[in-house]
Computed example of a mutant assay.
Amino acid sequence: MKTGTALSTGLKALPDKVSSFASTQAAWRFYANESVSLPVLQAPLTKAAQSTTV
């Protein structure tokens, strides 16, 4: 069984826009950015989850 591209999660290269090296370099810059951390990325999701009533 194979998950369709539109449904699969995770980091992917940009389609037909840049080379694989450019995509790799962009990912490295993102992960090496000190402003990017799990709490920063998680904050909007946590806020949305807390504001949702069941």
Score class of each variant (00 low, 15 high):
residue 1 M to S: 12
residue 5 T to K: 14
residue 5 T to W: 06
residue 6 A to W: 09
residue 6 A to P: 00
residue 7 L to R: 06
residue 7 L to P: 01
residue 7 L to T: 05
residue 7 L to D: 02
residue 8 S to A: 12
residue 10 G to E: 01
residue 10 G to R: 05
residue 10 G to M: 02
residue 11 L to N: 08
residue 12 K to M: 08
residue 12 K to W: 02
residue 12 K to R: 14
residue 13 A to L: 10
residue 14 L to W: 11
residue 17 K to T: 03
residue 17 K to Y: 05
residue 17 K to A: 03
residue 18 V to Q: 04
residue 18 V to M: 04
residue 18 V to H: 03
residue 20 S to C: 10
residue 21 F to N: 13
residue 21 F to R: 14
residue 22 A to T: 09
residue 22 A to Q: 10
residue 22 A to R: 11
residue 23 S to C: 13
residue 23 S to F: 02
residue 24 T to I: 13
residue 24 T to L: 14
residue 25 Q to H: 14
residue 25 Q to L: 15
residue 26 A to L: 03
residue 26 A to M: 05
residue 26 A to D: 01
residue 26 A to K: 00
residue 27 A to P: 00
residue 28 W to H: 13
residue 28 W to I: 14
residue 28 W to A: 11
residue 28 W to V: 14
residue 28 W to F: 13
residue 29 R to M: 10
residue 29 R to K: 14
residue 29 R to Q: 11
residue 29 R to V: 08
residue 30 F to C: 02
residue 30 F to Q: 03
residue 30 F to T: 05
residue 32 A to K: 15
residue 33 N to C: 07
residue 33 N to Q: 05
residue 34 E to V: 11
residue 34 E to L: 12
residue 35 S to G: 13
residue 35 S to N: 15
residue 36 V to L: 09
residue 36 V to A: 10
residue 36 V to I: 15
residue 36 V to C: 03
residue 37 S to H: 07
residue 37 S to N: 09
residue 38 L to A: 07
residue 39 P to T: 07
residue 41 L to F: 00
residue 41 L to H: 01
residue 41 L to N: 05
residue 43 A to M: 09
residue 46 T to K: 06
residue 47 K to N: 00
residue 48 A to P: 01
residue 48 A to K: 06
residue 49 A to F: 05
residue 49 A to L: 11
residue 50 Q to V: 11
residue 50 Q to E: 09
residue 53 T to F: 10
residue 53 T to S: 09
residue 53 T to L: 12
residue 53 T to M: 10
residue 54 V to N: 10
